[in-house]
Computed example of a mutant assay.
Amino acid sequence: MLTDIMYVTVYVTDQDRALRFYTEGLGLEKRIDFSGPDGRFLTVGVPESPVEILLWSHAAAPGQPGGEGPRAALGPLFLESDDLRKDFEILRQRGVVFEQPEPEDYPFGVRIEAVDPDGNRVSLRQKRKQWPTPPASWPRRSKPTAIGCAPSRTACWAHTPTPRTWSRKPGYASSARTRRPSATWRAG
């Protein structure tokens, strides 16, 4: 059975230049540097992370990396930050080139795209902060209610507006195991 991701490959035309970008620019650590029969096996990684990025030497090819502009294809790497705006300033001072002038908010957090010396996009992300835990004084519900979802004809689980009041929408199967509409259900 598969258990983990070992390597993610980024194709580069100059491994030494790429190594400087990923270690000195992005702050990753060099992990493996071995010259073998198939070429130089060079990896970097985020400190404390088991996943390694293989910087594999590859001749420049037309169309790689793909696209230009802000809506071009995503890069092969997504790196996570706990404070992307702060890290952006540090990386910019180190000479890292970005596609946008500043990190931008999006539905899942904050993002910006860096570009390595070979034009590979490196997506830097910060996850959105989780909603705070509701206070203990708020009413708690311990049991869901089935509410019909007409387009898919499945039962959705949600609570009723009144605390500690639970009911099942009429016309639904009574067995909690089935979670399917009963024969009286009609598409609206």
Results as ranks from 00 to 15, higher is better:
residue 87 D to T: 11
residue 46 V to F: 06
residue 27 G to S: 04
residue 29 E to W: 01
residue 78 F to L: 10
residue 90 I to H: 06
residue 99 E to I: 07
residue 129 K to I: 05
residue 182 S to I: 02
residue 145 T to A: 09
residue 104 E to W: 08
residue 103 P to W: 07
residue 33 D to Y: 09
residue 146 A to E: 00
residue 53 I to R: 07
residue 166 W to N: 03
residue 98 F to L: 10
residue 149 C to L: 08
residue 161 P to I: 06
residue 168 R to Y: 03
residue 121 R to W: 06
residue 136 A to S: 09
residue 122 V to Q: 04
residue 60 A to Y: 03
residue 43 T to I: 06
residue 66 G to F: 14
residue 64 Q to M: 11
residue 24 E to N: 13
residue 25 G to K: 05
residue 170 P to H: 07
residue 20 R to M: 09
residue 144 P to D: 02
residue 148 G to Q: 00
residue 46 V to H: 08
residue 160 T to R: 08
residue 184 T to S: 14
residue 128 R to N: 04
residue 105 D to L: 08
residue 51 V to R: 12
residue 106 Y to T: 01
residue 177 R to T: 15
residue 77 L to T: 04
residue 53 I to M: 13
residue 145 T to H: 03
residue 102 E to T: 06
residue 175 S to P: 01
residue 120 N to V: 08
residue 113 E to Q: 10
residue 155 A to W: 00
residue 135 P to R: 13
residue 50 P to N: 13
residue 101 P to R: 11
residue 136 A to Q: 05
residue 112 I to T: 05
residue 34 F to V: 13
residue 42 L to T: 01
residue 30 K to Y: 01
residue 148 G to I: 10
residue 105 D to E: 13
residue 95 G to Q: 14
residue 145 T to D: 12
residue 70 P to I: 08
residue 24 E to C: 11
residue 113 E to I: 03
residue 174 S to D: 14
residue 110 V to F: 01
residue 42 L to Q: 00
residue 129 K to H: 06
residue 146 A to Q: 07
residue 104 E to I: 14
residue 161 P to V: 07
residue 43 T to V: 10
residue 22 Y to Q: 00
residue 143 K to M: 12
residue 58 H to P: 00
residue 187 A to F: 05
residue 133 T to K: 09
residue 181 P to M: 01
residue 43 T to N: 07
residue 59 A to G: 14
residue 35 S to I: 03
residue 130 Q to A: 13
residue 121 R to S: 01
residue 71 R to G: 06
residue 93 Q to V: 05
residue 63 G to A: 11
residue 52 E to Q: 15
residue 61 A to N: 00
residue 59 A to W: 00
residue 21 F to I: 02
residue 23 T to Y: 03
residue 10 V to I: 13
residue 117 P to T: 05
residue 32 I to M: 10
residue 180 R to V: 12
residue 31 R to M: 03
residue 78 F to S: 02
residue 25 G to T: 02
residue 54 L to P: 00
residue 140 R to F: 06
residue 140 R to A: 14
residue 179 R to M: 12
residue 167 S to N: 05
residue 53 I to S: 08
residue 5 I to D: 11
residue 140 R to Q: 13
residue 120 N to R: 02
residue 170 P to D: 11
